[in-house]
Write a protein that binds this DNA or RNA. Sequence first.
DNA 1: GGGATTGTTTAAAT
DNA 2: GATTTAAACAATCC
Length: 276
Amino acid sequence: MPELPEVETIVRGLSPHLSQLKIKGVKLLYPPLLRGENKSHFERLKGKKILGIRRRGKLILIDFKSGISLLFHLKMTGQLLLVSKSEPLDKHVHFILSFICRDFELRFRDARKFGFLSFFIREAEEPQELKCLGPEPLEVSFSQFLKIFSEHRARLRNLLLNQTVLAGIGNIYANEILFQAGIHPLTLSHSLEKNELWRLWMAMREILKKAIASQGSSIRDYRDPDGSQGNFQSFHKVYGKDGEPCSVCGERIIRLRIGGRSAFLCPRCQRKKIDR
DNA sequence: GGGATTGTTTAAAT
DNA sequence: GATTTAAACAATCC
């Protein structure tokens, strides 16, 4: 379940290897993986040079010198692996890029096939997937953050998960951020005091930066391009910890269902405000 | 076998 | 209009 820190780790891992390489071959083993308007660019990838690779929210973008870009969304179980061509394929590999003068290749692997890729032209209008994204959590200023959260009246956990509000936070980090800030996930955003919003903003920055420094969290499927796991899961304080004692106060961590998704919290460290 | 899970979109309900 | 809920998507794990 790659979120911002995992996707950032993947991009940092791929970037030094892929930059300036020329495409030798392309294989699409599961055609429905390719979505969107510009499918024909797929046929014309051969010989194209990679300018660079970057992240936006949870999306991975490979920019080609020709002016087109390839966009990946890993959804829940997608992986981008850089492996030797001699490495045997398994049935979950759906897309392969190979490079001139290199004996490794880039494989898109996704056991559940929720992930996708699509092409877009950088000069043209932004594709829907990019256009609808909110600001980057690590770039948004406190004053912007304050504005966003006071203009909405949704439950904080939902707002943090909403990609049009902030791009890149998923369920793991939404829960960890709220714990770090000491705020209950059901709190309505407009009801927060300025000092609580400051705590939330600081917690968001701190958690995401630490997670990136730990190369993300590996739960179930997440792997970086070398196939190695992240380390941040050992720092999780609430996510998936229901029934365990809180590391701060010893109270049992509980699990709630909010919007059909699990929310984890310490009922003592994250007291519920009376609804207003 | 049933239910939960994961991220996102979409439709329907509040 | 804003927000929440449920369903859908695919496959796996428990």
